[in-house]
Simulated scan of single mutants.
Amino acid sequence: MTTPSFILNLRKKIGHELLWLNGVTGLVEDSQGRILLGQRADTGEWAMVYGINEPGEQPADTVVREIKEETGVDAEVTDLVAVVSSSEIITYDNGDRTQYMDHSFLCRLKPGGNADPFVGDDESLKVGWFSCNALPQPLAKSTVERLKIFDEYLHNKATGDAHALFMTDGKLY
């Protein structure tokens, strides 16, 4: 994963200290109900598209940008699904420590845009569309957790109770 320059600049000042970042996740569905996943170059695991907000960038714009950069697919946001803070502190191989506030978005293909995924940067080994009944393995732990959130949101939406989910006291609402 390419580290944004603003984070590199912060790291020069704070070293490996814990850094709180805004992140995004995009679940992109095509017209057949398949979801877009990429095989991560750093872990070999399959995952939804993730990314970090640049300073001043809106989260919905970030997820659309990340989807395009990583997979070549043109997407648009349809729903804000969840805003959830990670309880896990991630320590990267170089010692940097990070926690994320994730904004999860449901996305669809942008009309007239590219729907044929390709590896768009060095963050992925492969990308593709997958049926929810035949997901590639291994899936990243974060993708498994977020797929449950998306499933709950879509269930609520189908029953007429669509609202963005949030977590408090360890429970998802």
Rank of each mutant, 00 (worst) to 15 (best):
Y100N: 04
E66D: 09
D61Q: 10
G72D: 15
R65F: 10
D96F: 05
D79G: 06
Q99D: 11
V84C: 01
G95L: 07
Y100Q: 05
E66C: 07
V63Y: 01
V73Y: 11
T98H: 01
Y92M: 01
Q58C: 02
V83G: 00
E70L: 05
K68E: 12
R65A: 11
V81R: 08
E88D: 06
Y92K: 08
S87T: 12
V64C: 14
I90Q: 06
D96M: 03
E76S: 09
E70S: 08
T62P: 01
S86C: 05
D74P: 13
R65G: 08
V81P: 04
A82L: 14
I90A: 06
V83W: 00
N94I: 09
R65M: 09
D61T: 03
D93V: 05
E88Q: 09
E88W: 01
V77H: 02
Q58K: 10
Y92A: 06
A75R: 07
A60Y: 07
I67C: 14
T62A: 02
Y100L: 13
S86K: 01
Q99K: 15
D96P: 00
N94D: 15
T78H: 09
G95D: 08
I67N: 02
K68Y: 14
S85W: 03
E69W: 12
D61K: 05
T91I: 12
R65K: 13
Q58I: 04
P59E: 07
Q99E: 12
Y100P: 00
D93A: 12
L80S: 06
V73P: 03
P59L: 10
G72S: 15
V64F: 11
V73N: 14
Q99S: 15
I90M: 05
E66H: 04
A60S: 08
V63N: 02
E76T: 09
S86I: 00
V64R: 12
I90P: 00
T71N: 08
I89N: 09
T91G: 00
E76Y: 12
V84R: 03
N94Q: 11
